[in-house]
Design a protein around this nucleic acid. Structure first.
Length: 423
DNA sequence: TCTGGGGTCCTAGGACCC
DNA sequence: TCTGGGGTCCTAGGACCC
């Protein structure tokens, strides 16, 4: 058996942990530059606020209903996530961190046994402990496969009868009955396109999907659909991934709060994105063999001239050195930047990623690599703050940096911002 | 006025090899 | 008119996830 633990309304719940007055209030958390709604408390969902809605479209509703608004604070959410995951490790020796707010746990061989009742108690204990230790409410779904654990989790969070308990165990006997009432569009791995297609085929429930001929599923949904079909039938095809794999691509990109024409500012932004990609590579112990830089104008401004382009450069030798990647990114930018457009977004993607210790040396390249310098830089920055020591071209201009007007403090990661309790 | 930022996997088809 | 058989590698594009 496998358990899926999923934090409820994670970002909104993180904000709530540090301000009890927010209990019972509608909360939304906005994307970078305070653009779109990316998280909502239950109360905000009940007001009909949809995921991805631009903030300006619901300005009135926010005022009328007293919705509490936050800029996203990934430093806070990342740290809270780590605390949740740490707590989960007390409940199972095998934990796969699936996303910032979700984890799969091996629920076999638990001390209490694998009977449905025992699993239910285990789930409740887990849920209460996370709540007590970290302050975050979670839902727990338990089933024979990952896909069925996802179904169970959905029921634990949405079903009126099970919501209060917050834990649902989907054991073999109940499988068909539950899948019969489970809409196909809510199934993990079925997106909008496949949901439409399946409805046309008459498969509007998860159960009906499991009953379609495998050949049809293979033809229209590839082996991915086939695996999902088997998972829902109770045959495990997706195992726990206990060790996070090194990434194959790493991307750092941002929209600008306002549109930008000045190439110097865009160069600062691109330098910063490249340098952050380099940092992410070093943190993983990887190097990148190629780098792509891209820019585009604002696609929502239909009456303005539009331009989008990207340039990929192969590096002579795979690298995670900020200076090397920044230089490559600026060279790429020079190749695609066109004067006269107002740019909205720029980004850098690194690819052809290899482990640091497997980098193919270049016989003819003069090695500019100096990993010791990068190590010193990283340790200084971890002590004194992000980018205190940096490549000069990252600059200091404020114009292109994020707009975050409703940012909460970094309660758990910055001594200066620790919550003050008055006696 | 204002519209996010990351990722993965799979397949088909082209270019190439012997 | 007829035109082999077996591979690999790479990329773009689609679909999905959080």
């Amino acid at each position: 058996m496998m358990a899926l633990v999923d934090c409820n309304n994670f970002y909104a719940s993180c904000e709530r942990v540090f301000d009890p007055l927010l209990e019972g209030q509608p909360i939304v958390v906005l994307s970078n530059n305070d653009g779109c709604v990316i998280a909502r408390s239950q109360e905000a969902k009940d007001l009909g606020i949809k995921m991805g809605t631009p903030a300006f479209e619901i300005r009135e509703l926010i005022e009328q209903q007293g919705v509490q608004v936050f800029s996203s604070n990934y430093t806070l959410y990342g740290d809270m996530s780590a605390r949740v995951m740490e707590t989960l490790r007390q409940f199972s020796p095998h934990v796969e961190v699936y996303s910032i707010d979700e984890a799969f746990l091996d629920a076999d061989g638990l001390p209490g046994g694998s009977e449905p009742d025992a699993l239910l108690r285990w789930g409740q204990e887990l849920r209460a402990t996370v709540r007590r230790h970290v302050g975050i409410p979670v839902g727990v779904g338990i089933g024979p496969t990952k896909a069925l654990a996802k179904v169970a989790n959905h029921i634990a969070k949405k079903h009126p009868q099970h919501k209060k308990v917050g834990v649902f165990v989907l054991d073999g006997h109940k499988r068909e009955e539950i899948l019969q009432n489970f809409p196909i569009g809510d199934v993990w791995g079925i997106g909008r396109k496949h949901a439409e297609r399946l409805m046309q085929q008459g498969a509007s429930t998860a159960l009906a999907f499991t009953q379609l001929p495998e050949s049809w599923v293979k033809q229209h949904m590839s082996v991915v659909g086939q695996r999902l079909q088997r998972e829902l039938r109770g045959q495990s095809c997706l195992s726990l991934e206990l060790v996070a794999q090194a990434k194959q691509n790493i991307c750092t990109s941002r929209s600008f709060p306002d549109m930008l024409e000045d190439v110097e500012l865009i160069r600062e932004a691109v330098s910063t994105h490249a340098s952050r990609c380099a940092f992410k590579l070093r943190r993983e112990g990887s190097c990148a063999g190629a780098l792509t830089v891209f820019v585009h104008t604002n696609r929502f401004k239909e009456n303005e001239p539009q331009y989008a382009n990207a340039q990929t450069l192969l590096l002579p030798q795979a690298s995670a050195d900020s200076r090397v990647l920044v230089r490559a990114a600026l060279r790429g930018l020079d190749m695609i930047y066109k004067k006269g457009y107002r740019y909205k977004k720029a980004g850098v993607i690194v690819s052809k990623i290899v482990p640091r210790l497997q980098v193919q040396q270049d016989l003819f390249a003069s090695s500019e690599e100096n990993s010791r310098l990068m190590k010193v830089m990283d340790s200084l920055n971890s002590r004194y703050g992000q980018e205190k020591v940096r490549v000069a071209s990252l600059g200091y201009a404020k114009d292109w940096r994020l707009r975050r007007e409703k940012l909460s403090p970094c309660y758990t990661t910055s001594l200066a911002e620790v919550l003050l309790v008055r006696g």
